[in-house]
């Protein structure tokens, strides 16, 4: 059991009135095995991203626990949790996530350089090769297209070979062809042993996944796909 969420909930205060609480994610249990690829769908505002962020260690749940490799991540100090995320969790966020003052290769090597480790440039280049952006290594993010930027973010998330990959709408602004490339890549990562969870709006990608979940008004249900 690589990832295990126990009864996690998230409540937000809406507007300024303290009484009006909004429950983004209702008490939810969730597990993800190493080597499996899960897809999470749902309408906008259904709580998917909130759920994903709680799993990634970026948002403390109102109640419940998140365990990764038997470790309760929210009991760690910020320093330890950050280091843990750096090493074990690859996050692919929504939208743009490039540092515009660094070139593509430097952006991809960030997970290492943040921790003063030697940048593993060969590994980065190999990943870029697979994602077909190797020729862009010296380019700057402002010169890249949306699809190329997204593939850069994916390469960055995979650089430290994390056991858990969390992707938040990794293909939201991509065309069909790029979408296929990305999902095939995520599937391949799962085959190689990582646990992958992707939030998506795409309807025709369930073929890549082992499991499909759906979120509706903060409630998670598993769909019997295929």
């Amino acid at each position: 059991m690589l990832l295990k969420a126990e009864k996690i909930t998230k409540q937000f205060l809406r507007e300024s009135r303290n009484t009006n609480q909004f429950c983004a994610v209702q008490e939810t249990d969730f597990t993800l095995e190493a080597g499996s690829f899960a897809i999470l769908t749902g309408r906008s505002g259904s709580g998917k991203s909130t759920f994903l962020h709680m799993l990634s260690g970026l948002m403390t749940p109102t109640s419940g626990r998140v365990l990764i490799q038997e470790k309760e991540i929210y009991s760690l100090s910020d320093k330890d949790l950050s280091a843990f995320r750096n090493q074990h969790i690859g996050v692919i966020p929504q939208g743009q996530s490039a540092l515009y003052s660094l070139n593509v290769l430097e952006n991809i090597c960030l997970p290492y350089t943040l921790y003063h480790k030697n940048a593993h440039q060969e590994e980065a280049l190999a990943l870029m090769e697979q994602l077909e952006i190797a020729h862009l290594q010296a380019a700057y993010p402002s010169e890249l297209s949306g699809g190329e930027l997204r593939r850069m973010a994916i390469a960055r998330a995979f650089l430290r070979k994390p056991e858990l990959i969390l992707a938040d709408e990794p293909t939201s602004d991509l065309d069909d062809e790029n979408t296929k490339i990305v999902f095939a890549f995520l599937q391949k990562a799962a085959r190689e042993g990582a646990a992958v969870l992707a939030v998506t709006h795409e309807t025709d990608v369930s073929q890549f996944a082992d499991k499909v979940f759906c979120m509706k008004a903060g409630v998670l249900t598993e769909q019997n796909s295929l």
């Binding site: 990634s56 970026l58 910020d78 320093k79 949790l81 950050s82 280091a83 843990f84 995320r85 750096n86 090493q87 996050v91 966020p93 743009q96 996530s97 490039a98 540092l99 515009y100 960030l110 997970p111 943040l114 921790y115 960055r156």
Partner: peptide
């Protein structure tokens, strides 16, 4: 956003 990305990649506070 840039700082959020760094945080996401594992930079501590």
């Amino acid at each position: 956003k840039e700082f959020a990305v760094l945080r996401m990649l594992g930079a501590s506070q």
